[in-house]
Design a protein around this nucleic acid. Structure first.
Lengths: 224, 224
DNA sequence: GGCGTTGCTATTGTATACAAATATGGACGG
DNA sequence: CCGTCCATATTTGTATACAATAGCAACGCC
């Protein structure tokens, strides 16, 4: 079972789950003891989880030390996508000259599964999100920059991706797969400039598709 | 006294000091209890400090959970400067359209002091580093992006800046002040593209000046 | 009635005790 | 001589107890 992991890991995932699911709405206070009761561990691992969530901007610390669920605004969301576009584009550039053949093969396999997840009678959104995430993880790993990886890991993407994908229609999902395909071509050609351009366009288009789909919904997405 | 701050803060600063000073050389193990004894607090605040230092890549975690002082390589250093150039350039672009008159004035004052610190018979390196740091902090704050601020704060710059400035000759220091001046002009003109270009050039030139000064010394700088 | 003060309560910060996990060193057998 | 395995020691992970601090409300004072 996955529950064999450390208590602090479980606390992190569960608390983040509370935030992403909306059970802990933006602005609501988070007290260590209450969370400890919910998760079923002591305050110690809860504290560690909260510090991590704070550094990832899921929660914010008030004037004095009380923690609250962070609230995202429309501008915050745009800024986060801009940062991701910039940083992942850089990752793609590095990956272009560093990616291994094995990684390239895995990218192809992931993208094939990703494409398959949208051709059925009803698109498999969960599968799409998972494979999409995996795709980007491989690219970031291929960049082999611990710093870059650490930064991107903290650029909370899951809430956005999850809610975003649900809004995509089939053509959007297919287009995403197509862009991944072009990225793979750029990697195969070991062309950093090409890879950068494709990745930048990919992320920026995804954001604009999301924002255009339902502008009013944007501010509802949680985070700082 | 400054010792009124929390124990975890003190632990963070002291442990980071051990790393930056070289008392804890790259690769040496960091055990919680030993550090607790050195700092004079219990393991709890030491743990928090170590998690933070880990997220900032001052320390790395081995296969299983033991922490060691991180070791920087030449490529790591270049990559860090590249990331800083990219992110601070973005911060400058945002700041160009968001900076307040008060902040602009403070930038001018800081840059004046910065220039003054290098005109004496012997350059005031410590003063230069402090004012330089302050200058960049103001720009980052003016960008008003919590995410960006958080990321840049974790992009450990102190060790590099400190050791770097010591290598600068007077003309390098003066040139840095001049570039700051142009950045201020770009802000006054509220021109994001200009600000981005100046900041990018500023940071990249600083890195290359450092790398050119003594290439062999580069790998000696600590971090991951 | 306004307002500061005081005591209480809720919450975070720190220390310590204990449990679990991991490395270490030596005995033993090949 | 080398590797394996077990006992032990070291180190990290978690829980709990306690201390300090901030918020809050009731109370009295002016």
């Amino acid at each position: 079972m996955s529950s064999m992991s450390k208590a602090s890991e479980r606390a992190y995932r569960e608390i983040r789950g509370l935030i992403l699911s909306g059970d802990a709405p933006a602005g609501s206070p988070l007290t260590e003891e209450a969370l400890a009761d919910i998760v079923g561990v002591s305050r110690t691992p809860v504290r560690e989880a909260l510090r991590r969530l704070e550094s990832e901007l899921y929660v914010v610390r008030s004037d004095s030390q009380r923690l609250f669920v962070a609230a995202w605004g429309r501008d915050d969301l745009g800024e986060m996508f801009t940062l991701r576009a910039m940083l992942e584009a850089h990752a793609a550039a590095r990956a272009a000259t560093r990616i291994t053949l094995a990684e390239l093969e895995e990218l192809r396999a992931v993208n094939a599964r990703l494409a398959a997840s949208v051709i059925g009678p009803v698109p498999d959104i969960a599968g799409f999100v998972a494979e999409n995430r995996r795709f980007h993880e491989i690219v970031i790993a291929a960049a082999s920059s611990p710093r870059l990886s650490a930064i991107l890991a903290s650029l909370v993407e899951q809430p956005v991706v999850r809610r975003t994908a649900a809004r995509y229609d089939r053509s959007e999902l297919a287009r995403s797969g197509h862009e991944h395909g072009e990225l793979i071509q750029a990697f195969a050609a070991q062309d950093p400039a090409w890879a950068t351009a494709v990745m930048t366009a990919h992320i920026r288009r995804a954001f604009h598709a999301f924002a255009a789909a339902d502008p009013a919904a944007v501010p509802a997405v949680p985070a700082v």
